[in-house]
Computed example of a mutant assay.
Amino acid sequence: MDIAAIPWAELAPFILIGLFAQTIDSALGLGFGVLSNSLLVLFGTPPIAASSATRTAESFTSGAAGMAHILQRNVDWPLFARLAVPGVIGGVAGIWVLYFLKSDILRPVLLVYLIAVGAYLLWRAPRRPFAFRRIRLVAPLGFLGGFLDSSGGGGWGPLVTGNLLAQGMTPRIAVGTANAAEFFVTVTVLTAFVGIHGLQFTNAATGILIGGLVAAPFGAWLTRRMPPKLLLQLVGVLLVATSIWSLASLMFERLPVFPRI
């Protein structure tokens, strides 16, 4: 590869987007899809191209983020297995629904639910001590997260991370485990889409990928060292903000076309 021939000037804005979005996603367990898609659209990228670039890059950056959280010891392995396997099954089911059925009616209901979860996390953060708890209903949560991620273009992070935190799991373990399990769901979804549409690396996808790979270890490092109450509050703020934007984009056509979830 001729490094000098790489169009760094063209890639620079997309690298910055990848750096920002993946740092937030690795540190808080959600946000890569909505942040990178939104910034790409604001930079003038067509929504379809923005979605494609984000999905392509996320398939690789999620693996880097998962490995970084493993190295930082942010992953609970029994919980990981209980999330990843149903998540992959849900991802396959979501792809089938995407091509044969309509699932748009689920989106506004999910967004309202995520706003409520985010608000609860903001309320809960200063009021309760943080201690590891055995989380219930993990398999259904993983299945629904994978289903929404493949059929709706995103949703694993907000749904899975938000619910784990709402159930009382230690924040850094919830974020790290959800990030590690997400890699297998994302790869499953990408494999299906590659088989249908092929894989294309545009400048946007390449730039986001480079930035995301650089940022993933830093985000995992932040997760381990951030105070639990602060981490929980930041997740709550991001969950409420991104869900409100996504819900608004469904209600008002004149608003910028922000990605859903």
Rank of each mutant, 00 (worst) to 15 (best):
G66Q: 08
L71C: 15
R73D: 14
D76C: 07
W77R: 02
P78C: 07
L79M: 09
L79V: 04
F80P: 00
V85F: 03
G87F: 07
V88N: 02
I89K: 02
G91K: 04
A93R: 00
G94R: 03
W96I: 11
Y99G: 09
F100Y: 10
L101Y: 04
S103M: 09
L106A: 11
L106H: 08
L106E: 08
L110R: 04
L110A: 13
L110Q: 07
L114H: 05
L114T: 05
I115G: 10
A116E: 11
A116R: 09
V117Q: 06
V117P: 08
G118R: 03
G118M: 06
A119E: 12
Y120F: 15
W123H: 14
W123F: 15
A125E: 12
A125N: 14
R127Q: 15
P129C: 04
P129E: 10
P129S: 09
F130V: 15
F132R: 13
R133T: 10
L137N: 13
L141N: 02
F143V: 04
F143Q: 01
F147I: 07
F147K: 06
D149H: 02
G154C: 03
G154Q: 02
W156I: 01
W156S: 02
L159Y: 09
M169W: 03
T170K: 10
I173H: 05
V175S: 01
G176W: 01
T177I: 05
N179G: 07
N179F: 02
N179I: 03
E182A: 06
V185G: 01
T188N: 11
L190W: 11
T191M: 12
A192I: 03
A192F: 12
A192V: 07
V194N: 13
I196L: 15
